[in-house]
C-alpha cells in the first residue's frame, strides 16, 4: 500500500503544483488549495495514466478522501 501512497504524493504534487502535499488517508479536497471539480478530474486522469487503471465517472465522484482512493486503486490492481 505504501507504494500507492508514494505515487499518489507524486501525482498530487504535480497536479496541484505544490511540493508540500503528502498523500495520507485522511487528505480530502477541502485540505488542498485549488482542488475544485476540474482539478479533481485532472487528478483522476493522472492516476489512470500513472497506475494503468480506469475509473467510471461514478467511481471518480465517490471518493471522499485519498484513503478511499488508494483502496480503490488497490482493488482495481488486484482484480
Amino acid at each position: 500500500m505504501q507504494d500507492i501512497y508514494d505515487k499518489l504524493t507524486e501525482i498530487l504534487q504535480d497536479v496541484f503544483d505544490d511540493d508540500e502535499i503528502v498523500a495520507s488517508p485522511e487528505l480530502a479536497a477541502a485540505d488542498v488549495d485549488g482542488w475544485d471539480s476540474l482539478a479533481h478530474v485532472r487528478f483522476i486522469l493522472a492516476i489512470e495514466r500513472g497506475f494503468g487503471v480506469k475509473f467510471s465517472a461514478a467511481e471518480a465522484s465517490a471518493f471522499a478522501n485519498v484513503g478511499e482512493l488508494a483502496n480503490g486503486i488497490a482493488a482495481k490492481r488486484s482484480a
Binding site: 471539480s37 476540474l38 478530474v41 485532472r42 483522476i44 486522469l45 465517472a57 461514478a58 471518480a60 465522484s61
Partner: peptide, 27 residues
C-alpha cells in the same frame, strides 16, 4: 448531474483532448 453529466463529459473530453491549455475551457 455532477456525477452523471459533468464528470463523464469532462473525463471523456479531457481523455480525447489531452491539452492542459484547453482543459479549463472544456470545464
Amino acid at each position: 448531474l455532477k456525477v452523471y453529466v459533468y464528470t463523464p463529459f469532462l473525463m471523456t473530453a479531457m481523455r480525447r483532448i489531452p491539452s492542459p491549455a484547453i482543459e479549463p475551457y472544456l470545464a
